[in-house]
Design a binder for these strands. Structure first.
Lengths: 109, 109
DNA sequence: GTGATATATGCAAATATTATTATACTTGCA
DNA sequence: TGCAAGTATAATAATATTTGCATATATCAC
């Protein structure tokens, strides 16, 4: 499943911050190095993973590599992740639809 | 970060299928056991992780545990994951906004 | 060419996740 | 009370991810 791979790529504290920054605009490796408090090789490793997954890409600018967002699912996902959800989903009305269930459906939990 | 934890919970082929099924309605453990081809303890472990994260909950019905969706972010996330994105995001117009970058911005990549 | 800057890569160690197995708990029913 | 169905938990083994470090590559300025 492609979707799971995308999710796994985003589901990391460093990579989600990288993506959030890229949502604001183009950034090069040393820009990330400044505000993420990790080593340059580690930044590169995360960027390279995101690129392997096709989520971002870069262009060369002198000796800088300028990274930018590529996969359109990213802005949508990031937006949902910042959204405030106040209410829980409504609890199911009653009685499970289960092949084994002819039980009355009394909620004891 | 809470969001990363949520993403990690969803970013697994079994758990994403569990959540998709729960989107359709209530299901008990043995229901999952049937269509996911994994062992009962493994199903329980995934369910229990999802519950620890507050994404799902259950009620007792006889000796069945009937699981249901609880966190409203799930339907939104699942929807985006099934959406078709045809176009890539537009490439950035020009020239990086980088504190080091006064480079001309020629794209050599 | 030489040196400095910007970034990537390879590999091993540390850590986290997942599946498996065996066992325990709980409920309903005879 | 005792047994079976449904499910959970604990311990462990297998696997994947992440990080740190040393080193490599590429480009620019001189």
């Amino acid at each position: 499943m492609q979707r799971v791979e995308v999710l796994k790529s985003i589901a990391h504290p460093v990579r989600i911050r990288i993506l959030e920054e890229l949502l604001k605009g183009v950034k090069c490796v040393s820009d990330f190095e400044d505000f993420l408090e990790i080593s340059q090789p580690n930044v590169s490793q995360h960027l390279s993973l995101l690129r392997r997954q096709g989520l971002i890409d870069y262009y060369m600018d002198g000796r800088l590599r300028c990274y930018f967002l590529k996969d359109p699912i990213i802005p949508d996902l990031l937006e949902i992740l910042t959204k405030d959800y106040i209410e829980e989903l409504p609890a199911p009305a009653c009685c499970p639809v289960s092949k084994r269930g002819t039980y009355p459906g009394a909620r004891k939990h």
